[in-house]
């Protein structure tokens, strides 16, 4: 089977999103002309999006728009994983340790980065971001884990 063209995929995504918003909007009051309810505007825009998505997908089927560009799984997964690590750890462990661990994950995304260089990057960034963001700029972030007092 021929792989789907990127326009078909994009069209389906748009149509799906549009339909999703329309369905969810049914829980909200539609209202009338003088008093637009919270459901009216999203229903209108969502329907338009669903329609347009269908058109894009259909046109994509007929013409040859080209397949999606190659999806590189390794950097994709590792960058997302690094963000997740940061999100989960920053409140309980503080910025310093979180930065070390986040860089440890993210560094795997680049094959060229040696372990030693990654370690140095992690330490420099951990110190740097604590000093710049917390000490100098005064952002509300803990540097050390909360159980350190």
């Amino acid at each position: 089977m021929k792989p789907l063209s990127r326009d078909v995929l994009a069209g389906l995504l748009f149509a799906g999103a549009g339909i999703g918003f329309v369905i969810m909007s049914r829980n909200y009051n539609f209202g009338a002309g003088t008093r637009m309810g919270p459901g009216m505007f999203p229903t209108l825009v969502g329907s338009l999006l669903a329609l347009l998505g269908a058109v894009i997908a259909l046109r994509g089927l007929r013409s040859d728009a080209g397949t999606p560009d190659r999806f590189h799984l390794r950097p994709f997964v590792l960058v997302l994983l690094a963000i997740a690590v940061f999100t989960i750890l920053v409140e309980p462990l503080g910025l310093f340790i979180t930065t070390l661990l986040t860089v440890a994950v993210a560094a795997l995304a680049d094959r060229e980065l040696s372990k030693r260089a990654a370690a140095v990057t992690a330490v420099v960034l951990a110190i740097g971001s604590c000093v710049v963001f917390v000490t100098l700029l005064g952002l509300q972030l803990a540097i050390w884990p909360s159980f350190f007092g």
Binding site: V79, A82, I83, F86, T87, V90, L95, T99, T102, V103, A106, A107, A109, D110, E112, L113, A117, T121, A122, L125, S129, F133, L139, Q140, L141
Partner: peptide
């Protein structure tokens, strides 16, 4: 390879803050 780690950390800190 050094830069992207910094971008990632800064983006995360910025978004959180």
């Amino acid at each position: 390879k050094f830069l992207f780690n910094a971008i990632l950390i800064f983006c995360a800190i910025g978004t959180y803050s």
